[in-house]
């Protein structure tokens, strides 16, 4: 079974975690206990209440052996830093992170990371609604 780490349990993170936990080993990391609690007590995965900027947290979450790591907190800079650290230090196969509005492109790869620009994606979708 795949091992997936999701850093950031906001609205997106939560939905992703619940979706994936059906047939993958999902570990969710968030600094806020409330966010983790909203996942529910029945969450079929592991919750880690800690700061992602701490190397120990990343190790505890098992990023080293993970098949994919999603870094999707609300803080773009944090996402970039953690994403890069994960890729460089642990060489995780797939590191996907989200940014809100730092770059113009929708989805692109950089230094082995997959970066999803959420604002730009939504703009695209909205544009297509009236096309």
């Amino acid at each position: 079974m795949k091992h997936i780490v999701i850093i950031g349990s906001g609205k997106t993170g939560r939905e992703l975690a619940l979706e994936l936990s059906g047939d993958a080993n999902v570990v969710v990391v968030d600094k806020s206990l409330k966010n983790l609690d909203i996942l529910g007590d029945d969450f079929n995965g592991k919750k880690i209440w800690a700061d992602a900027l701490d190397i120990n947290t990343l190790e505890k979450a098992g990023v080293k052996d993970a098949d994919a790591v999603y870094v999707i907190t609300g803080n773009d800079n944090l996402n970039l830093v953690v994403g890069k650290v994960t890729k460089r230090k642990y060489g995780t196969k797939k590191v996907i992170l989200q940014v809100n509005d730092t770059m113009k492109k929708k989805i692109f790869k950089e230094e082995g990371l997959t970066i999803v620009n959420r604002t730009y994606l939504i703009v695209e979708v909205l544009r297509k609604c009236i096309a």
Partner: peptide, 12 residues
């Protein structure tokens, strides 16, 4: 004491 995050994997 959760061995693996996913219950199905744990039971396997």
């Amino acid at each position: 004491e959760k061995i693996l995050p996913n219950v199905v994997d744990t039971s396997r």
